[in-house]
């Protein structure tokens, strides 16, 4: 599925994200998420920065702007990674289009 910067995405209601010992763990609640039912997922700190913004209120463009303000990096890099991460999250049904 192609992901666009204009679109607003939201964390799936079928997953629970937990912070355990300072690590983000995403726990699928229902079957059909990820490759198997016992999968868990984790994102590193910058992945978390994106995940927390997938709140169903901001488009990816808006999220990219926020990230550019907080991270020392190029706009092109942010967009590429944002699209890459969200595409993977969408494909795994961890986030969805609002």
């Amino acid at each position: 599925m192609s992901v666009s910067l204009e679109t607003i995405y939201v964390q799936s209601e079928d997953v629970v994200s937990r912070i355990i010992e300072d690590e983000l763990i995403i726990v699928p609640l229902v079957s059909g998420i990820g490759e198997s039912d016992d999968d868990l997922y984790t994102l590193n700190e910058t992945g978390r920065a994106i995940w927390s913004r997938l709140d169903g209120a901001k488009s990816l463009n808006q999220i990219a702007e926020e990230l550019l303000e907080e991270f020392e990096t190029e706009a092109e890099t942010v967009q590429k990674d944002l699209l890459g991460l969200v595409e993977e999250l969408v494909n795994r049904k961890l986030v969805m289009v609002r």
């Binding site: 016992d38 868990l40 997922y41 984790t42 700190e45 992945g47 907080e70 020392e72 990096t73 890099t77």
Partner: peptide, 27 residues
């Protein structure tokens, strides 16, 4: 303010992609 970090290098690995999948035992 989040720590300054280059997004691309940290969240992407050619082997794992952007999201790290864990088995519960591994976790």
């Amino acid at each position: 303010t989040l720590p300054v970090s280059p997004v691309l290098i940290i969240i992407y690995s050619p082997e794992m992609g952007y999201v790290t999948r864990l088995h519960p035992d591994e976790y």
